[in-house]
Amino acid sequence: MAEIKIEKKKPIWPWILVVLVILGIIAYLVYANDDRDDYTDDFDDDITNEQVMDSESRSLESKTLDATGAYMAGTAYDQYTAYEGSIRDSTRIAVDSSYTKKAYYNLSKAVAKKAEEKEIETSQALTDLQEFSMLITKVSSPLSDAESAKNFKTASDKVAKVLEDIQKNSYPELESMVDELKLVASEMDGYISMNKQQDNITQFLQKSRDVLRAMNN
């Protein structure tokens, strides 16, 4: 009598495992691709937001481009933009010494750079603005209010002097603006604490901004 051979069915769980692995790989690839798309979208949004902010508010990160689209670092306009941004909160001027110090620092850089671009003859006032770090050190020290005011008064006089030199050399039409700036500077008192002459200091910084803006237009 012939024997009937019965073949055992092969288990199907290895195939199930293979299918699960394949599905897992496909899911991973789809998820990874979505993540890359999301990152790209976020990155593009950040760039767009920066560009809008740059064009609308002339923020501190503003960049000047030449005719070829290349970035020109350290131009007088760049320095002016940094200064303009550092005096936006007028309530902190002459009250917050660090904020005021930064404003004067940026102002000095902007004025010195404009003098450099216009090839203004070197003067002691211009040299002092170019070496403003010395005044920064003094203002950063634990000085009395009167001593701090004296340093800012000195810086204001030097700024007014150099802006007048630039105006006489290149911008005769701005004479009245510079005269007003000099008048405000003369009314500042180096022996009265800054917070007691906030209006004068604020007015000086804002008028300096207006003069620089006119020189950069």
Rank of each mutant, 00 (worst) to 15 (best):
L23R: 00
S86F: 05
A160H: 08
V211S: 02
R92F: 08
D157V: 12
V159F: 01
A2T: 15
E147S: 11
K153V: 00
A112R: 00
K63N: 08
T48R: 13
K158Y: 06
T154D: 14
S97F: 10
Q79G: 01
T40G: 07
K10N: 13
N200T: 12
V139G: 02
L205D: 00
E3L: 15
M53K: 14
Y31S: 09
K182E: 04
K10H: 13
Y31M: 05
S208H: 04
S140C: 06
Y99D: 10
P142A: 09
L29F: 02
A112Y: 10
T75H: 03
L107I: 05
D38W: 02
L29I: 02
S208R: 04
T40N: 12
Q167H: 02
D38Q: 13
N216G: 10
L17F: 07
A112P: 03
Y80H: 02
D44G: 02
D199V: 15
I136V: 15
S108C: 07
I136E: 13
D157S: 12
Y83S: 03
K150T: 09
I26D: 11
I25N: 02
K113P: 06
S208Y: 03
N217P: 01
D96F: 10
E119N: 13
E116M: 13
L212F: 11
I201F: 02
E7V: 05
N200I: 11
A115D: 00
D179Q: 12
P172C: 10
M194G: 04
S156C: 02
N49T: 14
D210F: 04
M215G: 01
K161M: 12
Y71F: 11
D89E: 01
K196E: 15
T48Q: 14
A110R: 01
S170W: 02
V178T: 09
G24S: 00
S57Q: 13
Y39L: 11
D66K: 01
N106L: 07
K207L: 08
N200S: 15
R213K: 15
Y171N: 06
W15K: 10
N49R: 11
E7S: 05
A115Q: 01
D42A: 08
S208G: 05
T127V: 10
E147T: 10
L107D: 09
M134L: 15
S176E: 11
D89Y: 04
I93Q: 09
S62C: 02
L135K: 08
L17G: 06
S141Y: 11
V30D: 08
T75K: 00
M194H: 01
E117I: 03
S208V: 02
I22T: 09
I4S: 10
Y99H: 10
V111C: 00
Y71H: 12
S193T: 13
S176F: 00
